[in-house]
Amino acid sequence: MIQFQYTRATQPKAAVDAVTKEKNSMFIAGGTNLVDLMKRGITVPQRLVDINRLPLKDIKKEGSSLRIGALALNSQVAENKMVLQSHPLLAQALNAGASAQIRNMATVGGNMLQRTRCPYFYDTTMPCNKRQPGTGCGALEGYNRMHAIFGFSDRCIAVHPSDMSVALMALDASVLVTGPSGDRRIPFADFHRLPGDRPDIDTTLRPGELITAVDVPDSPFTKNVHYLKVRDRASYAFALVSVAAALDIKKNRIEGARLAMGGVAHKPWRLAEAEKFLVGKPVSEATFTEAANIAMQGAKAFKHNAFKLRLAPNSIVQALKTAAKLV
């Protein structure tokens, strides 16, 4: 880790200014991914602007949304009464991520910005277009068990590791940012990018922009929800496949549905077609199986992750069954 400058900001504007002023400056909040990346020499900021003292920690009702401050800790959000009441899916997803200690450090904003866990990204002697554009994708012809089955490009087949983001995707959240040219709101679906020919860029944030909050709109998805995370051990592991499932069920009929997957693409993967199919259908395993088949259209596997073509639809069915309390 190189020596770097360190400053603390107390107001968002000052933080944005500080990061904009000097090249190679970055915000640091929880640090749970950034410090890791800096130790490995993957991210080498010349200056860190500590934003932990910015007043962005509140979780509060804002019109017909719940506004979650970007610096709210993952554990605070997961245990927040309003979150548990109105967005239990989000709480479940948060608790499925990392460990209790990391959830006590990681912020909502930082969680969204965590980099992929692709091993080729982390090994600086191996090719990786995300880490070092132009060096190639190590995973494409390599060990790609953890990798994408949707939305990848020939430059990058990495997946996004966040659980929280999968729930936020399903819940139609939006991201509030402030930056050198003012404030803006980014729909969650537009926040993370697909790799395309620039896998080094994970999000649509512009230089110097700071996430200030996430808005999660009110929804009927307060009861029949489930976040299923399938991983290589019972806890504290990244998802092979995860499913955020939310159903609005009235008299055994699906009035509304939300479905998103993690561990399958460069961004949280919304299953819009399957959602559409589910609306108006009766609650049954057969319905869910068909929805899963629709969801999997266009999926393509690589040498080591073909199992995801079976695991993903089965997990969708399982998550929907659990959400619908069929199990």
Binding site: T125, A234, S235
Partner: peptide
Amino acid sequence: DHRFGRYITKDFAEYHIPVHA
């Protein structure tokens, strides 16, 4: 990864050992 002769799963996030659960 035998193209490089380097391990792919070489930390506790990739090489899993049992946790409490």
